[in-house]
């Protein structure tokens, strides 16, 4: 019976923290709608998330596009369907790999940094200091990060889409000897608006989750350096899981029959 009790306990802890996270998110969101908004801080977070993540997201997208072209070419060659490479690359990148890989990279880069920074502020009493200086810590620390995550990830993914398709193009044209004009027209031929839009919606949701998990775990970190370390790990792991889970759900919403 101990075994069952352990399962039950774990499940209760899971439900409890889910509830806490939802309440935290609702409180933070309610602050988004009320002035004052710290525009300077929002701007700084946008630059941090959007601009400084460009290299890492760009490289990820480039190599993913390249490997996608290579893999689908060798796979499709077995039943003479090499012509579908361009379509497969563009659909896979815009619908799926662009947002998911960008989301995961940003979770590692930004989510961890947020949890570490806010966590350190918590354990060194800087968050309490904010309150005593008549500044709401949720509004000052969390709201700018949520807004920046929500708005910057779609832009990052748009860049990732373009770079990824370009990576596929490079490999197809220079290594697999496709005709560039034909490849490009194939890329456009079956691409619909919804393919790109669904990817951008995903990106926005992922950006929100990354920022939310980074802020939540940092905000509730306890007990010095070790606590901050745990918070950082939890932020990245939970953001990654949420990204993969919500990716499935959003895909279902857009493309289910």
């Amino acid at each position: 019976m101990d075994f069952l009790a352990a399962i039950g306990r774990a499940f209760l802890i899971f439900l409890e923290s889910t509830g806490r996270i939802v309440l935290f998110a609702l409180r933070a969101l309610s602050h988004c709608a009320r002035p004052p908004l710290y525009l300077r801080l929002i701007g700084r977070q946008m630059i941090d998330i959007g601009y400084y993540s460009l290299p890492v997201v760009g490289l990820t997208a480039l190599f993913t596009g390249m490997v996608l072209a290579l893999q689908s070419y060798t796979g499709f060659a077995r039943f003479q369907a090499e012509g579908a490479v361009a379509t497969v690359v563009v659909l896979a990148i815009t619908r799926e790999l662009g947002p998911v890989l960008a989301g995961l990279m940003v979770a590692g880069r930004i989510g961890a940094a947020m949890a570490a920074e806010i966590g350190t502020m918590r354990v060194t009493e800087q968050i309490d200091a904010l309150s005593t200086l008549a500044t709401n810590p949720l509004k000052y620390l969390v709201v700018p990060r949520l807004i920046a995550g929500l708005t910057m990830l779609p832009l990052l993914v748009l860049v990732a889409d373009i770079v990824g398709v370009f990576g596929g193009f490079l490999v197809s044209v220079y290594q697999l000897n496709f005709n560039p004009a034909v490849y490009l027209s194939k890329t456009w031929e079956f691409l619909k608006v919804v393919d790109v839009v669904s990817g951008l919606v995903k990106a926005s949701v992922f950006g929100f989750f990354v920022a939310l998990m980074g802020c939540y775990h940092g905000y509730h970190s306890r007990g010095g350096a070790e606590g901050v370390g745990t918070a950082t790990t939890n932020a990245v792991v939970s953001a990654s899981i949420l990204i993969l889970l919500s990716n499935y759900l959003i895909t279902g919403l857009f493309f289910s029959k």
Binding site: E117, Q126, A129, T132, A134
Partner: peptide, 16 residues
């Protein structure tokens, strides 16, 4: 809280 000021044990200065 506008009435209060506080000196924290570890100073708690904002390092950013």
């Amino acid at each position: 809280l506008r009435k209060f000021g506080m000196l924290f044990q570890g100073s708690a200065l904002f390092d950013s």
